[in-house]
């Protein structure tokens, strides 16, 4: 079984900066972390590997320094890593990102399962997983919290919905996007850490993927960010202090005036 996990390096939410001219993210100087949901995806893949014999390839599309994220994941026990990096990939929307990722997965070949995080905590769209699946023409399930292979060609997944849970059966190859409940990400091991340090990580650009510069990155994107701004801060903050009765009375009145349904 060959599993591909897609991971994304994201800026630590605590400090984010947007280039006012290009409206693109400025990552330099901001600490990068691996998208937390992608660590769940890696964990899910490793659990499958623990239980059977799977090979796991982790891929990311990003700037050269995204290699760091790949090594970090290698140190947790993933077998191989692949960096998709090219100036032409810059500024991709989810479509262009998915075009690139799916081209790489197609080139890797013989992939049985693709795992993604539920969403990336920066772009926050949750679109890349489903779009990659669509471009690869394979079935997918989102927001999965549990999964188990049924037989060689089928997978059973439990997914979290707004209303409860659903159990789906998918034929493989398939793509799954996972949530926290798939399992607490394990820490690195020393052996894997040593291996990760030395591992050769191939870098593929448009040439290796056989893509045209116009199909990827900003050029290949359908959506365009025209304005980025900070959300208006709350300026009307009320602090309620005083005796317990006063506080209860004040809050009750506050919510009543705001016409909160149910109060």
């Amino acid at each position: 079984m060959h599993i591909v996990v897609c991971i994304k390096q994201v800026p630590d939410t605590k400090n984010v900066r947007i280039d006012p001219d290009t409206h693109t993210l400025v990552r330099q100087g901001v600490e990068s972390i691996i998208n937390p949901f992608d660590l769940f995806a890696v964990e899910a893949a490793l659990q499958i590997k623990d239980a059977s014999s799977a090979t796991i390839t982790v891929i990311t599309m990003g700037p050269p320094q995204a290699e760091e994220a790949l090594r970090e994941v290698l140190s947790r026990g993933v077998d191989a890593a692949l960096l998709l990096s090219d100036r032409a990939f810059a500024g991709a929307d989810t479509w262009a990102t998915s075009v690139t990722l799916s081209a790489a997965i197609r080139k890797l070949g013989n992939v049985d399962l693709i795992l993604c995080g539920k969403q990336a905590v920066d772009g926050d769209t949750a679109q890349v997983g489903p779009e990659v699946a669509t471009l690869l023409d394979i079935p997918y399930a989102t927001f999965v919290k549990k999964m188990e292979p049924l037989d060689a060609q089928h997978l059973k997944v439990t997914r979290q919905t707004d209303e409860g849970t659903e159990v789906w059966k998918l034929s493989t190859p398939a793509l799954i996007t996972v949530i926290k409940e798939v399992g607490e990400p394990r820490l690195p091991s020393l052996r894997h850490k040593m291996r990760a340090k030395k591992a050769a990580i191939p870098v593929w650009g448009i040439a290796e993927l056989g893509l045209d510069a116009n199909d990827v990155g900003l050029c290949g994107s359908f959506t365009q960010v025209v304005r980025v701004f900070s959300p208006p801060r709350r300026t009307d903050r009320v602090i309620i202090e005083g005796s317990l009765e006063e506080q209860v009375e004040q809050l009750y009145r506050y919510l009543k005036e705001a016409k909160v349904p149910g109060i």
Binding site: V121, G123, V225, P231
Partner: peptide
């Protein structure tokens, strides 16, 4: 986006 720290018009 960014967990609500940024708004973007697209």
């Amino acid at each position: 986006a960014f967990g609500g720290n940024v708004m973007a018009t697209i």
